[in-house]
Simulated scan of single mutants.
Amino acid sequence: MQPPQIQASQALLETRAWVDRAVIGLNLCPFAKAVQVKGQVRYVVSEASDAKTLLSELVAEMQRLVAAPAAEVDTTLLIHPWVLQDFHDYNDFLDIADGALEELGLDGVLQVASFHPDYQFEGTDVGDVTNATNQSPYPTLHLLREDSVDRAVDAFAEPEAIFEANMRTLEDLGEEGWAALRAQCRKDAGLP
């Protein structure tokens, strides 16, 4: 299922707005602001319309990230608006993504984090607002350097408290607040 008439440039702008307003603005990831401010986040919009093509692009992005100095590119967001729209298919693809890391010998070097418009944590209801902590505008695979994650976690007094704080943040924001934030991200991207 393809989003109606979305252009790659709009998907990029809306995702950047989501990172700024939700991920950083709500402090869902206390480590995101530094790499965003330094311009170390690589945003890539995939034109893939099938999982095989997406996997090929994902592998290329894994290799590109590992080859780049961390000071230039610390993390990559691979946005794929036209493939894996179904959350269950997307979730199944994560095993394939992890398998690609292993095949490339990058397990322990990189990790793949997951974001999807219909993200749902196990044990939650579909409409549970706490799922929004991982609900991006479009399906997105986030490549992270393990070394960077380890440094960030070591610098944070209680990294396990992040998840709980995020749940409280979204509960306080509520469904209406989350809907307003998403609408603002669309507006920032020039979308209706």
Rank of each mutant, 00 (worst) to 15 (best):
L55T: 11
K52N: 12
D89W: 06
D92P: 00
V41T: 10
H88C: 08
Q36I: 01
V126Y: 06
L84V: 06
E103W: 00
D98F: 02
S56I: 09
Y43P: 03
V41P: 05
F93A: 09
A70V: 13
V45S: 05
Q63I: 12
M62C: 15
D128K: 05
L84I: 07
D125Q: 14
V66H: 12
D118C: 06
E103D: 13
T75Y: 08
L94Y: 03
G123L: 06
D50R: 15
D128G: 00
D50F: 13
I79R: 03
V109I: 12
K52S: 11
P69E: 15
P69Q: 11
T124I: 05
V59Q: 08
S49F: 01
L65G: 02
E122I: 01
V44E: 10
G123Q: 01
V59E: 09
G108A: 11
D86F: 10
Y90P: 07
D107S: 12
V45G: 03
L65F: 12
F87V: 14
E72F: 08
A48E: 09
V83S: 05
I96A: 14
V109E: 04
D74I: 05
K38H: 15
A60W: 02
A68E: 14
V41K: 02
H88F: 08
A71L: 12
D89V: 11
S56G: 15
Q40V: 10
A48Q: 05
T53S: 13
D128Y: 04
V109D: 00
V112K: 00
Q40A: 10
V45N: 02
W82Q: 06
V44W: 00
N91R: 15
K33C: 04
L104S: 03
K52F: 10
A32K: 07
